[in-house]
Nucleic acid binder design. Structure first.
Lengths: 199, 199
DNA sequence: GTCTATATCCAGATAGAC
DNA sequence: GTCTATCTGGATATAGAC
């Protein structure tokens, strides 16, 4: 067994541990809220000492940043694949938005950390922020394909999408009162924007 | 001087102290974020001991609840008065939404506490929640006057309005990139909803 | 009404043994 | 890699003097 093979094995094990830590962190956040996550409690939940986690994540900031990047790393391929069999660009946009809203409402804690971004002292690193921008780019591309090329109109559309997610998570958690309106809301907005002058 | 007059004077003084505490709390939240507010720091800022504030607010929860109610108590008359000189129901709706978005972006901390509601352990009391509902009712009434009578369409409209506020506060704080689109966005959505079937 | 003193608990981070 | 031990500082809340 060469030294290189050993290094691969230990690296793989390290990745597996990190994966488990992130999964447990998501679970705790889902249960108690994003702001309630403490490294101590996470460690207790994992059966180790708080200090041992520092070996993997040197600070709480680093842990939150890893979670942020992890969330977008999961969301991005889902958005990219959404509506691949759609009959029209608008249908594909609707499918993409439905996928996004499904993710947000199924995982309110992720929505809070990744998109709402009101977690106490947290700001994503530049690298993690880039992953978020790349993911947002998918949505903007689908919007453009559906005819929303004006940046102002894209901002409006983003607002509607984010707003449906926000209302859903805040005022009907676990339900679909707001998100189920997304297809009609989007089609109506697109139609309205196309016929409403910019005064 | 009767005992009753004395009681009034001391009650007035108590109200004045409470007013000052709330104002300083809003200022600190605006500076450091809602979640960062601590009773200790607030007391330090006011020049008293943390324990003295408990005389006015028995717990941090009570303080946050008072702030929540105070914010809606200020917002409600502003919304009620908005667009009183408007030429049409739609114009009045636009004026009301503009007022709301102006409040949210001028006071992101209030938006966070009152409408975003992701403050660690905070849930408003039933009484405070009612004030929030009464305020929301003004917006719903203006929407109905503008022709949005279908509850589903009202939900969609709420989503758009809240979403523009959320995007503005999160992605262009201090600017007006999203909120300035509100009039066009609203008019377009209303027009679109009126002509888009519910399939 | 405001204070001192204190209780109790929790957080994140560091040093260094093994 | 994980541990024990410890540091440092923060939080909310209570008891009781003045």
């Amino acid at each position: 067994m060469t030294e290189n093979m050993l290094r691969q094995r230990t690296a793989a094990r390290r990745d597996a541990v990190i994966r488990e830590v992130l999964d447990r962190a998501w679970a705790l956040m889902a249960r108690d809220g994003v702001a309630a996550l403490s490294v101590r409690e996470l460690a207790r939940d994992l059966g180790v000492r708080q200090q041992s986690l520092i070996y993997y994540f040197p600070s709480k900031q680093a842990l939150l940043d890893a979670l942020f990047a992890d969330g977008f790393g999961q969301l991005q391929p889902r958005l990219a694949a959404a509506g691949s069999a759609a009959a029209s660009p608008v249908d594909r946009l609707v499918a993409t938005v439905t996928e996004l809203l499904g993710y947000c409402t199924a995982h309110p804690a992720r929505y809070h950390l990744m998109l709402q971004r009101t977690v106490p002292g947290f700001t994503p690193s530049q690298a993690s922020h880039q992953i978020a921008l790349d993911t947002l780019a998918i949505l903007l591309e689908r919007l453009a394909d559906a005819g929303v090329t004006d940046p102002a109109d894209a901002d409006i559309s983003r607002g509607l999408i984010n707003g449906l997610a926000a209302e859903q998570v805040a005022n009907d958690p676990g339900g679909d009162r707001f998100t189920r309106q997304a297809p009609r809301a989007l089609r109506a907005l697109l139609a309205g924007l196309a016929t409403t002058s910019k005064e």
